[in-house]
Amino acid sequence: MKLQAMAKINLGLDVVRKRDDGYHEVRMIMQTIQMYDQLDMAESSRPGIRLATNLAYLPNNENNLVYRAANMLMEEFHIKKGLDIRLRKMIPVAAGMAGGSSDAAAAFIGVNRIFRLGLSMDELMQRAVKVGADVPYCLMRGTALAEGIGEKLTPLAPMPPCHILIGKPGISVSTKFVYSNLRAGEIKDHPDISGMIRAIEEGSLPGVTARMANVLERVTIPAHPVIEEIKRNMIAHGACNALMSGSGPTVFGIFDNRRTAEAASRALKRSGLARQVFLTRPFQGGNTHEK
């Protein structure tokens, strides 16, 4: 079975407060994009899970979210047969694009289908949050409002048509570092998430791009100024707006014209600011996951 695990960006990301348990409550607009990892999954007569990846530095045991997700379902349903998984990573690692969470979501889908467990999407999402806060969204996909720690999801109308330029500099960012250094109580200028939802419902791309904001930039950009340089580069070459996704360091720019987006992509590559550059579009194709 071949499955696509798609990346996400955050059109808007607000931190409402820090809870007593240490977690941060968020309010953010999530958007799936047409950029994906691929999982090849197959039942095996040999017991246990065997996970292989195209990146030597990725773990192939319980420290990998794919392994953890598959193992969770197989243990719960006492599956004695084995599972072979081949993960081909294309989404940048530690980039604020939920690559690992999306891989885990695909693993949930694959185990459910291969072993005919009969779990509904809601039942999978209830289990997925135990692996990671973004995993339920990666199961659902599309355009959504995420609240709580990211697990409370409300589907929204599709994002207006556009072109999305992705630029990932040659650095990685720890989500733990960003949230640990965020002073949530000092945030005064909160993103207009409600206004962005209205703009999405109205199909207004300018209404969406004008409200793009991410409060985590106040931590990540001072530590990694190249993120701001990439944003400025995209805007200088015609982006309606540009923003850091998640805790970073990936930057995305929104374009209303394909030729302008293609020219901006070439300019960003020439600049040397981003190690990985990718031009794509929003994904609104549902949650089938199969290639």
Results as ranks from 00 to 15, higher is better:
Lys130Gly: 08
Ser101Cys: 04
Glu147Tyr: 10
Arg141Tyr: 06
Gly96His: 02
Met121Glu: 12
Pro155Arg: 14
Val131Glu: 03
Pro92His: 09
Cys138His: 01
Pro155Ser: 12
Ala105Pro: 04
Glu123Trp: 06
Pro169Asp: 11
Gly170Val: 05
His163Arg: 15
Lys152Ile: 15
Gly110Glu: 04
Gly167His: 11
Thr143Met: 12
Ala157Ser: 15
Ala105Ile: 02
Ala146Arg: 10
Leu165Lys: 11
Ala105Cys: 01
Gly170Lys: 10
Ala128Trp: 02
Ser101Ala: 05
Pro92Asn: 08
Val93His: 06
Gly132Trp: 00
Phe108Asp: 05
Ser120Glu: 07
Leu124Ile: 12
Gln126Phe: 01
Glu151Gln: 15
Gly170Asp: 15
Met121Gly: 01
Leu165Ile: 12
Gly96Gln: 05
Ile109Gln: 00
Arg116Thr: 14
Gly110Lys: 02
Leu139Lys: 06
Pro158Trp: 07
Leu124Val: 12
Ala98His: 02
Lys130Met: 12
Ala128Val: 04
His163Ile: 12
Ser120Cys: 05
Cys162Lys: 11
Leu153Gln: 14
Ile91Pro: 05
Arg141Ser: 13
Leu153Gly: 11
Met90Phe: 11
Tyr137His: 06
Gly96Arg: 00
Gly100Tyr: 04
Ala95Gly: 02
Arg141Cys: 13
Gly110Pro: 00
Leu117Ala: 05
Arg116Trp: 07
Ile164Ala: 08
Lys168Asp: 09
Ala146Thr: 13
Ile149Gln: 11
Asp134Thr: 07
Ser101Lys: 01
Phe108Gln: 07
Gly148Asp: 09
Ile114Ala: 03
Gly100Asp: 11
Gly132Arg: 00
Ala94Trp: 07
Ala105Gln: 03
Leu119Thr: 02
Met90Ser: 14
Pro161Arg: 14
Gly100Val: 04
Val93Gly: 06
Asp103Pro: 01
Gly96Asn: 00
Ala106Asn: 00
Pro169Lys: 12
Ala104Val: 02
Leu119Ile: 03
Gly142Asn: 09
Pro155Val: 09
Gly167Thr: 10
Gly132Val: 02
Ile166Val: 15
Ala133Asp: 11
Gln126Val: 06
Leu153Tyr: 14
Met97Cys: 06
Ile114Lys: 06
Leu119Gly: 02
Ala107Cys: 03
Arg127Asn: 05
Gly142Tyr: 06
Thr143Arg: 13
Asn112Ile: 04
Arg113Thr: 10
Ser102Val: 03
Phe108Tyr: 14
Pro155Met: 08
Ser120Gly: 10
Cys162Trp: 07
Ile114Gly: 03
Arg141Thr: 15
Gly167Asn: 10
Ile91Val: 14
Gly118Tyr: 08
Phe108Met: 09
Cys138Thr: 03
Asp103Gly: 00
Ser102Lys: 01
Glu151Val: 13
Arg127Ile: 04
Glu151His: 14
Ser102Pro: 01
Lys152Glu: 13
Ala133Thr: 13
Leu119Phe: 03
Gly170Met: 04
Leu156Met: 12
Tyr137Phe: 15
Asn112Gly: 03
Ile109Arg: 07
Pro158Ile: 09
Ser120Tyr: 04
Ser101Pro: 03
Pro160Arg: 10
Leu165Val: 12
